[in-house]
Amino acid sequence: MRKNIFETIFFTEILKGLSITLGHMFTKPVTYKYPFEATPIQDRFRGVQYIKTHADGSTKCVGCYLCQKVCPSECIHIETDCGPNGERLIRKYELDLSRCIYCGYCEEVCPVDAIHMGWEWNLVDNTRDNYVVNMRVLSQNYKDNLEGNWKNKHLKKKLEEGVQQ
């Protein structure tokens, strides 16, 4: 394209660019001042898992090993046994959050709607041992999600509030 002399002399292109910059100076910023300010969490964000419980507090998980099998980072470890009345008993359910890649396959594969991806994500800790969580912690996460009882202050949304899970 040939430039005309008028544009060359009066720097109109630069002014055009500056006008966009100037315009943005008066709009609301899209960035957040993390860590002084919280970033919003989307409904389909995949954070730390929680495991649903029945009304009586017992876990919904049946110990089918499907999440262990499907997990690409092999962070779930399950041990089951036969209970005294011939029922399926979960001896151990461990999830290593430091190995987890939060892909959500476990949520997808669960046949009984037990394990879900939550919104909690801030996991800073002094020791790696705390990253291995068990059924008790995962069930507690569910309760916290329900009650909006967040460790991270910026999380406002409760599980019941309009989330299409």
Binding site: G63, Y65, Q68, K69, T80, D81, C82, G86, R88, L89
Partner: peptide, 12 residues
Amino acid sequence: NRVYLFKNRPWN
């Protein structure tokens, strides 16, 4: 088999 019942799954 009640000895193996729920101890593990075959793919493991």
